[in-house]
Computed example of a mutant assay.
Amino acid sequence: MIMSKSKANLTMQPSADYQAKLATPFAVLGLRIDEDWLTDIEYLPIDTPTLAPQNILAREICDQLQAYLTDPRFIFDLSMHIGGTIHQRRVWRTIQDIPSGTTRSYADIAAQLHSAPRAVGQACGANRLPIIIPCHRVIAKSGGLGGFMNASDGIPLAIKRWLLHHERV
C-alpha cells in the first residue's frame, strides 16, 4: 500500500537515520522507517558496514527483501509512505503491477498513463522504494536498459542489470 507523505528525494544521510543496512550481492540497502511506515530504501556502496534491524518493522522489511533475493517472484506486503506528485504516484502504482521476470518500456507506461516517456523516467528516478516499487523493470523502448537512479551508466546500471538478471529477464 502506498501512502503519500512529504519527503525529499534520495539523499545520503548519516547512519543514525537508518533502521537497518542489509547486505545484498549488488549493494547495501539502507532502510528508513518513520513510525510504522517504510519511507526509503537507498543503495549504499557494497563495502558499507551493515546494521542489524533496529525494530520489528525493520526486521520484517529485511526478511521480505531476503525472500525476494531468494525468490524473485516474491510479492512484497509492506506499509509504505512515499511523497511525490500525483503523476509520480500513478507511475509507481503502474510499475508495481509489472510482474517479476518481465519489463515494460518508458513509452508503454507513458501511453497507458497519457503521459510522456521522459516524465515516466523522471518518476522512476524519484522512486524512493526501489525493488519494492520495481523501477528496474522499466527499460528503453529500443530494448536497451534506459537509465536507473537518475544515471545512464556506472554502478546504477550494474545494479539494474543484476536485478533484471536475478529475475531472468
Rank of each mutant, 00 (worst) to 15 (best):
M1Q: 05
I2F: 14
M3W: 07
S4K: 15
K5Q: 08
N9W: 13
N9E: 09
L10Q: 15
T11F: 05
S15K: 09
A16P: 04
A20T: 02
T24N: 00
T24G: 05
P25S: 05
F26N: 00
A27I: 04
L29Y: 00
L29K: 05
L31A: 07
R32M: 00
I33Y: 03
D34E: 09
W37G: 02
L38W: 01
D40T: 08
I41P: 14
E42F: 11
Y43L: 15
I46H: 07
D47A: 14
T48N: 11
P49E: 12
P49M: 12
P53H: 08
P53N: 06
Q54W: 01
N55P: 08
L57V: 08
L57A: 14
A58S: 00
A58I: 02
A58K: 04
R59Q: 10
E60A: 14
C62K: 07
C62R: 00
L65N: 08
L65K: 09
A67R: 10
A67G: 13
Y68S: 13
D71C: 01
P72S: 05
I75K: 14
L78H: 13
S79F: 00
S79A: 10
M80Y: 08
G84S: 11
T85D: 04
T85K: 13
I86F: 13
I86T: 15
I86G: 13
H87S: 12
H87F: 10
H87D: 03
R89E: 12
R90D: 13
V91D: 09
V91W: 13
W92A: 04
R93H: 15
T94Y: 01
I95N: 07
I95T: 09
Q96W: 06
D97K: 12
D97G: 12
D97P: 01
I98S: 08
I98F: 09
I98T: 03
P99W: 00
S100T: 04
Y106H: 04
Y106W: 01
D108A: 13
I109V: 03
I109P: 02
A110V: 02
A110C: 02
Q112D: 05
H114A: 11
R118N: 14
G121D: 02
A123W: 05
A123R: 12
C124P: 07
G125S: 04
A126H: 15
N127K: 12
R128L: 13
L129V: 14
P130C: 06
I132Y: 12
C135V: 13
R137D: 10
V138F: 06
V138H: 04
I139W: 11
A140S: 15
S142K: 03
L145Q: 10
G147P: 10
M149G: 07
M149K: 04
M149H: 09
N150C: 14
N150S: 10
S152M: 11
G154A: 08
G154T: 07
I155V: 15
I155S: 02
P156Y: 10
P156W: 07
L157N: 06
A158V: 12
I159P: 01
K160A: 01
H165R: 14
H166R: 00
